[in-house]
Nucleic acid binder design. Sequence first.
DNA 1: GCAAAAGTGTTTACTATACACCCATGA
DNA 2: TCATGGGTGTATAGTAAACACTTTTGC
Lengths: 249, 249
Amino acid sequence: MEKQEDLIDFLENKQNYIPHLSIDCVVFGFHNNELKVLLLKIKNINTWVLPGGFVGMSEGIDQAAFRILKERTGLENIYLEQFYTFGQENRSKENTLGNLLGIDQYEAYKKSWISKRFVSIGYYALVDFSKVNPTVDDLTEKYAWFELKQLPCLAFDHKDIIEKALATLRLNLDRKLVGFNLLPETFTMPELQSLYETILDVSLRRNNFQRKILNMDILERIEKLYTGAANKAPYLYKFKPDSQPKFDE
Amino acid sequence: MEKQEDLIDFLENKQNYIPHLSIDCVVFGFHNNELKVLLLKIKNINTWVLPGGFVGMSEGIDQAAFRILKERTGLENIYLEQFYTFGQENRSKENTLGNLLGIDQYEAYKKSWISKRFVSIGYYALVDFSKVNPTVDDLTEKYAWFELKQLPCLAFDHKDIIEKALATLRLNLDRKLVGFNLLPETFTMPELQSLYETILDVSLRRNNFQRKILNMDILERIEKLYTGAANKAPYLYKFKPDSQPKFDE
DNA sequence: GCAAAAGTGTTTACTATACACCCATGA
DNA sequence: TCATGGGTGTATAGTAAACACTTTTGC
């Protein structure tokens, strides 16, 4: 949304979105041994939201999620998975968008589809932190990464959504090997271990972790990575090109 | 829906449901060592559907799912869990309700909210087979239990929904101990084992299975069950009153 | 040579599986 | 007393955790 007319078109649902249905994306990134989530700040007020959007009338929900993520964060070709749908009756009653924007007394808003109750489909995305460069739009002012234990003031039930996304991520970490999507193409074993330790919030043994991962037979060892530190240089690894993990469902 | 006027009200969305959004329930039951799913037959045509419905404008989706299940099958107080939301653009294009009912050429239908594209939230229910006594409504003619490997002709993408529900059930069988919801209040160990074997489609060892389950420390052994068969009578078990399984999420 | 961090090997404990046996029941 | 199916105990294999040690790197 670039201009004011676009906002009016949006309020009148000219683009023809499915009413009462939204999509929210929990974008996880890993940086400085911390698991972070990408949030957007609403203009003028101290409230943050998940990057979200709506489903076009002739658009599949998965496609909508990909489009929304691209529009609102510039991200493309990333790991994205639906994890839960949030539909409590009062989930957006307290903090409607109009309330947050201070426009809920205007007739145009009150009549608009956007002021109504919404059911939201949750997706979580795993991205290589170093490749992210989000953009902002008319409603939002800036973006930022937040550590999961230090979330800011969030709108609607977005805190619940983040927590459910994290629970799903934990469950899928081993089962679907999704964790690798949070790392660059090549990475060291200590990096991977730190990722696991952060997500699962446990500490693991170096040797046992390495054996476990290598026994999966999905990694290829490349050259060493010389960091300049006064210690042994760790090996770099990358995914074996032919080894797409096989899911039994 | 009892009368014709109700059908018209329904087509005009007088009850004010959220448009484009539906709920489908996959009801699992266990009988004769077979895992079965409850389906409803549409009047006059050889097509079956999952018990489903819509979400009231001021109703949470979980409440809606419970209400729908009660309305369409008479079932109450049962285990019900959301597992996935289905929103492919063409999921109900081929076999719209109007098409199936042969009313899609009527203006009243074409203008109706019901003829449009729908996103459907999937729930699965686990019921004690012996306690089920579904009722039918205006649109449906009868109900029946189907073995999962012998499903009839299904409308929309309901076959996909059933398969995804089964995959979720398998994942949750051990993790959330949901399987017990498919059995009566008291049951024998061979019965429970048969349930596991059927759902997971594997064969397990009697002794090891018994040890595994009893080690969970969630069952209480009651008296023996004399069946009249020429063999040792199995013990009956029931859930320990205080032992609600603890989920780590 | 030393500290720091990575890598490797070995032992131990635990758990899941396989095997063998015993018990109750009704014909 | 025999066949049938249920219950229990024990050995074995396989895996995960713990412990100990070696290697590499820059100062």
